[in-house]
Simulated assay, not measured.
Amino acid sequence: MTEVSFTQMKDGTQADYVFLEQLEDDHIKGLPGRIMKALAGLSDGLAGYKIDRLHHSLQTATRAEDEGASIDWIVAALVHDIGDELAPLSHAEFAAALLKPFVSDEIVWVVEKHGLFQAYYYAHHVGGDRHARDQYKDHPFYDQCVHFCEAWDQASFDPTYPTRSLDHFEPMVREVFSRRAH
């Protein structure tokens, strides 16, 4: 079989859906490669900073690794802004959705909320509320999100920081995104 028999899903057969399930499994196995390609594409993204978005992502992951963070946190730090190209107004949620099947709820929450928490550093300069993150003050992952932003994310715009390459992080990306989804 090279394609399904139906033109409407309701008309599909068991053979059609078994065939599609195998193709989907194969497609999912290619996810780490597509993530690496998307990360590399961040080098052509949003301008104006001293470093490009790829370098920022690499530097954020390098800081996480330098601190001794787990592989899950390092990969989360690496992909936290992967949505900048396709979902610039919801990039954090985009990255969290990408990570959700593969990492802990804590990491997903931190990545999902990091955009709001990052506003602490700049919102007051552009008419926003830098304390908007305080709505989550009692959340069990609040302190970890503050740390993610303070120690890794907001600090990672330094062109002189010794930053590891995308090749360095590739095995970690492949390990995390090749796991059986939970």
Rank of each mutant, 00 (worst) to 15 (best):
T2W: 01
T7K: 15
T7Y: 13
K10V: 12
D11M: 12
D11L: 15
G12N: 04
T13S: 15
A15W: 00
A15L: 04
D16T: 08
D16H: 05
V18K: 11
L20F: 03
E21K: 12
Q22V: 09
L23Q: 15
D25L: 09
D26I: 09
H27P: 00
H27V: 03
I28W: 14
I28M: 15
G30F: 00
L31S: 06
P32L: 14
P32T: 14
G33Q: 14
I35H: 09
K37Q: 13
A38Q: 14
S43G: 15
S43M: 12
D44N: 12
G45Q: 12
A47P: 15
G48P: 14
G48N: 13
G48L: 09
Y49I: 02
K50V: 00
K50T: 08
D52G: 10
D52W: 01
R53Y: 03
L54Q: 12
Q59T: 00
Q59A: 08
A61N: 09
T62C: 05
T62D: 09
A64I: 04
E65T: 01
S70R: 06
S70E: 13
S70A: 09
I71K: 14
I71C: 06
W73V: 09
A77L: 03
V79D: 11
I82N: 08
I82S: 13
D84M: 13
D84W: 03
L86K: 11
A87P: 10
A87K: 13
P88A: 11
L89D: 14
H91T: 11
A92W: 01
E93G: 07
E93N: 08
F94A: 06
F94W: 06
A96Q: 05
A97F: 05
L98I: 10
K100A: 15
P101G: 08
S104T: 15
D105R: 01
E106C: 04
I107K: 04
I107M: 07
I107P: 08
E112F: 05
L116W: 00
A119C: 04
Y121H: 15
Y121G: 05
Y122T: 14
A123Q: 10
H124V: 04
G127L: 03
G127T: 07
D129Y: 02
R130V: 00
H131A: 09
R133V: 00
Q135H: 03
Q135L: 02
K137R: 15
K137Q: 13
D138I: 01
D138P: 01
H139N: 15
P140I: 14
F141I: 00
F141N: 13
Y142M: 10
Y142Q: 10
Y142C: 06
D143N: 13
D143G: 03
Q144N: 11
C145F: 04
V146G: 05
F148H: 06
F148Y: 14
E150C: 00
E150M: 02
E150D: 15
A151Y: 02
W152C: 03
W152P: 00
W152R: 01
D153E: 08
D153A: 03
A155F: 02
S156F: 04
S156M: 05
D158A: 10
P159G: 13
P159F: 09
T160H: 11
T160D: 15
P162G: 10
P162V: 07
L166A: 08
D167Y: 02
H168C: 01
F169N: 02
E170L: 04
E170G: 02
P171G: 02
P171F: 01
M172P: 00
R174T: 09
R174L: 02
V176A: 08
F177N: 09
S178E: 04
A181H: 11
A181P: 12
H182W: 07
